[in-house]
Design a protein around this nucleic acid. Structure first.
Length: 824
RNA sequence: GCCGAAGUGGCGGAAUUGGCAGACGCAGCAGACUCAAAAUCUGCCGUAGGCGACUACGUGCCGGUUCGAGUCCGGCCUUCGGCACCA
């Protein structure tokens, strides 16, 4: 027999599969669909192990679902706009498109080497004009629906990348991609109004039982809904009112100062009348210069400056000092906060530092708080009100409602729901993105590019010079355009779109990838979408998944699709770790998938990655573990080779009752394995235990290597073994299938079912415990009842010896499991 | 600080509903085969004590519930991930 040679057989079958188009999928209303999707990659140049893990998991799901009878959609594409392509252009003079497409070709080659069951005919590449035409079309849709708008904003600016970053893309004050310090800059920017869907994005998390709880919690926290009271305080000296938002209206009588953000709109008027105007201006400038991270860091010192002005607390008429501070954010709430030192720890620290008055307004249920003894604010949410006028003595939760009622009756406040979520800043001052299809006309203002003129193509001839301005803004040929409305000279918008927009709808494009009349046909999307199983890294738990959910809801409201949520089930895979740290070039612990494939083959790489850890947990890479996976596949190769001639000549059907006892046991193990693998793959996503049970079955098969085995049973074992292993190791199983059974592909066979009757055993080993400790084991008939079990247990010599002279208090018998004798 | 996840042999991990802790694999040890090595096959492999049948201990720590706890409850500790002055 020939030796197992993955290099030869893998290449051979990949060519056969490609030639015969075996993974091509078509809409078929007579069959139930299943949409399996892995997050598409950015074409950085090479696959890493994280990709391999992602695709291996997805491929098992897709192949398993195909074998169990579903019409499976399993596509792949590339999220191919983005900065690295532009950086390559700047640094090496390569065109971003050339660089990107070369990388795509290389990564596709590596994906093909893995033997993944993709329908490549459905490939979506976001930087292709056929694709971004529709990304622009969606922008126009959002614009027409009032969900895309422009506003001046203080934005996060990354000097290295020369672009604006969304708040969500700033990590620790640094650019999420290049890691350099983020600055503040004021620019006019395009936004998508995701906040219009805040409530639904929050509520609909309940419609996602197939999502990991932790992901839903992260999204919930990100949306950050709070209920509270917004009320206004008068500033008599200015003849103005200032609004504050609070989630603790019960503390409203304890307000002793008002804290304003440095960016607050009233600042100018305050400076006009304050005799400390210069100081205040200087303070505000300094605070604005600080990065958001500096201002919001937990360690940062709370700072402020008294404006010399006062406002009036409408609840008790008390005069309240107005301060400007560094710890109040302009973007959240109203940019002004009521300061209650006794019941908010930040306010406590601030008031203590600057000697501001403190008024205690809540007493805990037990004991008495005294201001002079307090070392920190009382932040517990229970107690009764004091120093709060008519609300004195009221339980605080009741008081919240009563105080809000009062504010609404008096007309100076109203209940309000606030969200932490901010609108999505989509403008990028970059070249390598989808151009925003807007024309700025001196007469007509903002004009959408007519639909028939889409796509707005990226110009080929552009200069890439290091600098902060987008190459598009310097490209005359792109810039100059006639106004579609009046025909006069006009200028194109030069901002491009955040790449998260491209990836917010790609799963819909896969359902109808070649459509040039629409982003997708409604009937095709209706058949295939939503995605049944989405698989990807936890790092996308918020941004990508939230944006895709937002897109889905807008498209649903437009009538393009008829479902609320894009991804019915979500699987978040763990990272691939080596030597205790995530694989990365800087740490020098990278293992190249191509090297592993070259040495052991794709089947080994896939099998190891799926066997070494449960999919949701981090996976520690082990070169020796890879060896083990290779040894296992070689074992399968050898044992099936050994039985090959017997299997080929064996009858296809037989009567299992004619088997010998030992043969029946082998058949029992086989059917037990079928049951286990079916459940582990189909219901639990426990691929590691599925593989281990296949290994156990192969071990049982191995015991027969030198013995005569019923050839029909050998055939049944071989057939089922290859089918069970096929989703994990598609090449070796296809080769062996072809060798043993001739025509047809193992991947087009029906998943094996198990014979319940074969699983039953006549006898079973049960455990005998005394006081919960295992003392003996006996073999009994499987259907023995409790009473007989007790009797059998008590008759055991060892049990008798150990219970001699002791009181038997109780005997617990659990059929098929154990007997526990409680003695004293 | 808040939220979330995890903690089991030398290592990765298993134990699905409260019922034999350590499946499967890796590493290690011994043997078979071989002139020899590799490959392969077989056996052993939690800790301590014992020649041994065996005994005691053992799932991060302390307590509880239960005939019985890795699993449930209460309180801690550690590690990892996310968020972090959100009013």
């Amino acid at each position: 027999m020939e030796k197992y040679s993955p290099q030869t057989i893998e290449k051979k079958w990949q060519e056969v599969w490609a030639k015969n188009d075996v993974y091509r999928t078509e809409k078929d209303d007579s069959r139930q669909k299943y949409y399996a999707l892995e997050m598409f990659p950015y074409p950085s140049g090479n696959l890493h192990m994280g990709h391999v893990r992602n695709y291996a998991i997805g491929d098992v799901v897709a192949r398993f679902k195909t074998m169990t009878g579903f019409n499976v959609l399993h596509p792949m594409g590339f999220d191919s706009f983005g900065m690295p392509a532009e950086n390559a252009a700047i640094q090496h003079g390569v065109k971003p498109g050339d660089w990107t497409y070369a990388n795509i070709e290389n990564m596709k080659r590596q994906q093909r080497q893995l033997g993944l069951s993709y329908d490549w005919d459905r490939e979506a590449i976001t930087c292709s004009p056929d694709y971004y035409r529709w990304t622009q079309w969606f922008f126009e849709l959002f614009y027409k629906k009032g969900l895309a708008y422009k506003k001046g904003a203080t934005v996060n600016w990354c000097d290295t990348c020369g672009t604006v970053l969304a708040n969500e893309q700033v990590i620790d004050g640094k650019c999420w991609r290049c890691d350099s310090e983020v600055q503040k800059k004021n620019l006019s920017q395009w936004f998508f109004k995701i906040t219009a869907y805040a409530e639904e994005l929050l509520q609909d998390l309940a419609k996602l039982p197939g999502w990991p709880e932790r992901v839903k919690i992260m999204q919930e926290n990100w949306i950050g809904r709070s209920e509270g009271l917004e009320f206004t305080l008068e500033i008599p000296e200015l003849g103005e009112k200032v609004a504050v938002y609070t989630t603790r209206p019960d503390t409203a009588f304890g307000v002793t100062f008002l804290a304003l953000a440095a960016e607050h709109p009233l600042m100018e008027k305050i400076c006009a009348v304050s005799d400390k105007a210069e100081e205040i201006k200087a303070f505000c400038e300094r605070v604005k210069g600080q990065s958001e991270i500096e201002r919001t860091s937990g360690e940062a010192e709370k700072e402020g400056i008294f404006t010399g002005l006062y406002c009036v607390n409408p609840f008790n008429g008390k005069q309240v000092e107005i301060w400007v501070t560094n710890y109040v954010l302009a973007e959240y709430g109203t940019g002004a906060v009521m300061g209650v030192p006794t019941e908010d720890q930040r306010d406590w620290l601030f008031a203590t530092k600057y000697g501001i008055e403190k008024i205690l307004t809540i007493q805990p249920p037990e004991g008495e708080l005294r201001l002079e003894d307090m070392q920190a604010a009382y932040v517990e949410k229970n107690g009764r009100l004091i120093n709060s006028g008519r609300f004195d003595g009221m339980e605080m939760h009741k008081a919240m409602g009563a105080i809000m009622d009062y504010a609404e009756e008096q007309g100076f406040g109203e209940r309000k729901v606030n969200y932490r979520l901010r609108d999505w800043l989509i403008s990028r001052q970059r070249y390598w993105g989808a151009p925003i299809p807007i024309i700025h006309c001196p007469h007509c203002g903002e004009v959408l590019v007519p639909e028939e003129d889409l796509p707005v193509l990226l110009p080929e001839k552009v200069n890439f010079e290091q600098g902060a301005v987008s190459p598009l803004a310097k490209c005359e040929e792109f810039l100059r355009v006639k106004c579609p409305k009046c025909g006069g000279e006009a200028k194109r918008e030069t901002d491009t779109m955040d790449t998260f927009i491209c990836s917010s709808w790609y799963f819909l494009r896969y359902t109808d990838p070649h459509n040039d009349k629409a982003p997708f046909a409604k009937d095709k999307a209706k058949y295939w979408a939503p995605v049944d199983q989405y698989i990807g890294g936890i790092e996308h738990a918020i941004l990508h998944l939230l944006y895709s959910r937002f897109f889905t809801k807008v498209l649903r409201d437009e009538g393009l699709i008829d479902f609320d949520e894009p991804f019915t089930n979500l699987l978040t895979q763990g990272m691939v770790i080596k030597d205790g740290a995530k694989m990365s070039k800087s740490k020098g612990n990278v293992v190249s998938p191509e090297d592993i494939i070259e040495k052991y083959g794709a089947d080994t790489a896939r099998l190891f990655i799926l066997f070494a850890a449960p999919v949701e947990r981090d996976l520690e890479w082990s070169d020796q573990g890879v060896e083990g996976a290779y040894r296992f596949l070689s074992r399968v190769w050898r044992i099936l080779g050994q039985f090959a001639s017997a299997i080929k000549n064996a009858p296809t059907t037989y009567d299992p009752t004619t088997l010998t006892g030992e043969e029946k046991e082998l058949r029992r193990v086989l059917h037990l394995t079928i049951k286990k693998v079916t459940e582990d793959v189909g219901e639990r996503f426990m691929f590691n235990t599925a593989i281990s049970s296949i290994m156990e079955m192969v071990n049982a098969f191995y015991l027969w290597q030198d013995k005569a085995l019923n050839p029909a049973l050998a055939r049944e074992v071989a057939e089922s073994l290859l089918k069970l292993l096929a989703p994990f190791a598609p090449h070796i199983t296809e080769e062996l299938w072809s060798n043993l059974f001739g025509e047809g592909s193992v991947h087009r066979t029906k998943w094996p079912s198990y014979d319940e009757a074969s699983l039953t055993q006549n006898e079973i080993e049960i455990v005998l415990q005394i006081n919960g400790k295992v003392r003996d084991k006996i073999t009994v008939p499987v259907d023995l009842d409790r009473e007989a079990m007790e009797k059998a247990a008590l008759a055991q010599p060892k049990v008798q010896a150990l219970t001699q002279g002791k009181n038997i208090l109780k005997v617990i018998a659990v059929p098929k499991k154990l007997v526990n004798i409680v003695v004293k």
